[in-house]
Nucleic acid binder design. Sequence first.
DNA 1: AAAAAACTCAACCGCGCTAGT
DNA 2: AACTAGCGCGGTTGAGTTTTT
Length: 405
Amino acid sequence: MGRSPCCDKVGLKKGPWTPEEDQKLLAYIEEHGHGSWRALPAKAGLQRCGKSCRLRWTNYLRPDIKRGKFSLQEEQTIIQLHALLGNRWSAIATHLPKRTDNEIKNYWNTHLKKRLSKLGIDPVTHKPKSDALSSIDGHTKADSNLSHMAQWESARLEAEARLVRESKLRSSSLNSQLGLSGSGVDPGQQLNKATSTSTQPQCLNVMKAWQGIWSKPTKCGLVTGEGSSTGGLDLESPTSTLCFSDNSMPVLTVGFSDNPTMSSLDLIPNSSSGTFEGAPVKEECDEEYMGGEYKRMVNSAVPLNTGLQDMGFSTTVDSPWSSESSKVGNEHIPVTNFIEGFTNLLLGNSINDRNSVDNTSGDGDSSDNGDADAMDCEEFEENKNYWNNILNLVNSSPSDDSTTF
DNA sequence: AAAAAACTCAACCGCGCTAGT
DNA sequence: AACTAGCGCGGTTGAGTTTTT
């Protein structure tokens, strides 16, 4: 019948954890790994339910957790991802290394939500509250964007779930191959490997496809306006650069071109998952953040666009970092620009302005559906203004001395 | 200085999903 | 197919802390 209760056994302790309990849990997991959470408390000598132990570990004791104030970049990431994903805190957390879903959730509820509300922005829909009034039939122009987002997100979630399963399988098979359970390998290192693997972002892959879709139809020239005709290899975006660090690891820098005061966000490729991980630019990031954990470079055989394949797209890629484009169906997508497209979608992009000007003077071909084009440009202009407002708010907030940890 | 209000965040709760039997 | 165990997620709570009155 129903689920067996987890925490209603008599004698099990609840409430705040004591340092002694923390120590017991930490020592046990470091030595044995957590194994079955339900069985763990008895083995570790704790009068707690397994669920409580798991929560304490994942939200507090785990070694790869960063505590303290959220950085500006983290705030921006949370706001942007929340607009896309809603209250899917665990999904958002995969893009904020060392932050737990619980912490992000709390930070959203206690800080960011209020800040957006004060700005007159609905923190649920991320739309200006007045939009509902100005809209004739209750639907705003942004609804069409959100509809696209919802469709992609739905597909993304399915793909992500599969990826996680596969990742677990790979991880467990790797562990067994390495003989981790009984070898002389440092348990702490085992833990770090396990946890770092589990926190690697998985779902940005779909952004590539998303970016490709978004960049394709609009004549505002979202991202690939000029480059697409050359096979999507345009890397000369005004707002993104692909550079290579000393160890030949590409770092994609996404700038907020319309806001000169805004810091840029470096995206460091995680070659084992085929995704990019966000990290602050050098001026603001701390050593730990940019340390080995996020600069790990493994020559992994995992395809760059596993997520796309998972979604049923036919994808080809030459090698994880040597190829700047991949195929979705028959369409080339500039992979290195995918996050730019994501940011463009959220922030608008100066490219839009430039190309929209071009289009207004346009050639005969582009004048076929000029009304629709104008509408697209209008929508992107609205999006740009909206996101600039949000990000400016975050930037200018009096409580924001949070660029340090 | 004290009380009240507001805020923060660790922890709990219940549900849904998946894997195993 | 039905059931159970276990895990993870999102929503909520409440104790402790800080700020305001």
